[in-house]
Simulated assay, not measured.
Amino acid sequence: MIIYLDLNIFDRLEKIDLLEEEEKTEYTNLLTFISNDNVEVPYSNAHLNDLLRGWKKNPIYIDGHLMNIQKLTKDLCICQYWGERNIWWHKRDIFEFFNSKKDELDLFDETLDELFDFGLGDKSPIHLTKKLLLPEQWVSKISKDKFAKLMFPTTILEKSLYSLFADLYSFQIKLKSDYSFYKLFKAQLSKSISSLKGNKDVVNYIRNNDQIPKHLKNDFFSIAEAYKPRFEIKENDNESYYKVIETFYTFDLQGYKSDANFNNMFDDGLHTFYASHCDIFITNDDRCKYKAEKTFEKLNIKTLVIKSNEINKLKNL
């Protein structure tokens, strides 16, 4: 049996001696169960992503967290590496893996200038796009939209193709770092998708072009599915990765048990992807649990999702 633990479970097991008696008994029972020779417990890069956010705030406790996970998993790692068609199950020292991810933090450029600089400064070809002006009508239109003004501030001022590229680059960074901005974006996206429900032409398009049976309700999920970007699955891509992450994110966009933090949401989706390769997923995060269950149900994945106090459900498995 393979059991995937959310980081909140690893954390409670690490603090087991400090817990109140009732909770201590609960986690002692869980620890006994996962310590069985017939049970494997892996860690993943999603756990390391969670720990990296904590490391940025306070690095003091990280070694203790890593030691605890290493003890429980015996360095069994499940990971989807870039450009690989399938996940990897392998032994990898968690300290080495964590340090390699720390090194990667400095690889990402904060601005478009940094991204295309290559030591050329003002001579970088990207600066040629500053001379290409955007259509005045389009700029005027976005300048009147409340959210567009947040998304394209430099574009509205400078009206150049370069400023549009720069704003789009800054936008994807803001989604990950600015919680309030991500919340506004998600609300805007949900509003836009939901508004399609009342559009007769849109509903007919969905029915005629996406083969959705007429008896099915055109709800949020079907509209989002019909209009989502169609990614080209390359030969070395893991198709199940895209399916799980996209499905998880679409349930998040519906608003119920939604997450205001993009990074948390994405890593919960990543935890769910890795858990889909295991028999059991244990999490005490209600938002993650709900979306993982709905994702597994929609994709017909047999992984059982439970909380730490539901360990009795595993006795007959």
Rank of each mutant, 00 (worst) to 15 (best):
G255E: 04
G255Q: 02
G255C: 01
G255V: 06
Y256I: 11
Y256F: 13
Y256R: 03
Y256K: 14
Y256P: 03
K257F: 15
K257P: 00
K257D: 08
K257W: 13
K257C: 10
S258I: 05
S258R: 12
S258H: 12
S258T: 13
S258K: 13
D259M: 12
D259A: 10
D259Y: 08
D259R: 03
A260N: 14
A260T: 10
A260G: 14
N261F: 08
N261I: 08
N261Q: 05
N261Y: 12
F262P: 02
F262Y: 15
N263D: 14
N263W: 00
N263V: 10
N263S: 15
N264I: 06
N264Q: 11
N264P: 02
N264Y: 09
N264W: 02
M265V: 04
M265G: 02
M265D: 12
F266P: 04
F266D: 02
F266K: 03
F266L: 14
F266C: 07
D267T: 14
G269R: 02
G269W: 03
G269D: 07
G269E: 02
L270A: 03
L270Q: 06
H271N: 15
H271K: 06
T272Q: 04
T272W: 07
T272C: 14
T272I: 01
T272D: 04
T272A: 15
F273E: 08
F273A: 05
F273V: 05
Y274E: 05
Y274T: 04
Y274P: 12
Y274A: 04
Y274C: 00
A275S: 14
A275R: 10
A275V: 09
S276V: 09
S276N: 10
S276D: 11
S276C: 13
S276E: 12
S276T: 05
S276H: 09
H277D: 01
H277Y: 15
H277P: 02
H277I: 01
H277G: 03
H277C: 07
H277T: 05
C278K: 00
C278L: 09
C278A: 15
D279L: 06
D279A: 11
D279Y: 05
D279I: 00
D279M: 07
I280V: 15
F281E: 11
F281H: 09
F281T: 04
I282A: 07
I282G: 09
I282H: 09
I282P: 11
I282R: 04
T283G: 04
T283P: 11
T283C: 04
T283Q: 06
T283R: 00
T283V: 03
N284T: 02
N284I: 05
N284V: 03
D285A: 07
D285V: 05
D285S: 08
D285K: 05
D285F: 11
D285G: 09
D286F: 02
D286S: 13
D286P: 07
D286L: 13
D286C: 04
D286G: 11
R287L: 01
R287M: 10
R287T: 03
R287P: 00
R287H: 12
R287I: 00
C288I: 07
C288E: 13
C288W: 00
C288N: 12
C288M: 15
K289N: 05
K289M: 09
K289G: 06
K289Q: 06
K289E: 08
K289A: 14
Y290K: 01
Y290T: 03
Y290R: 02
Y290C: 01
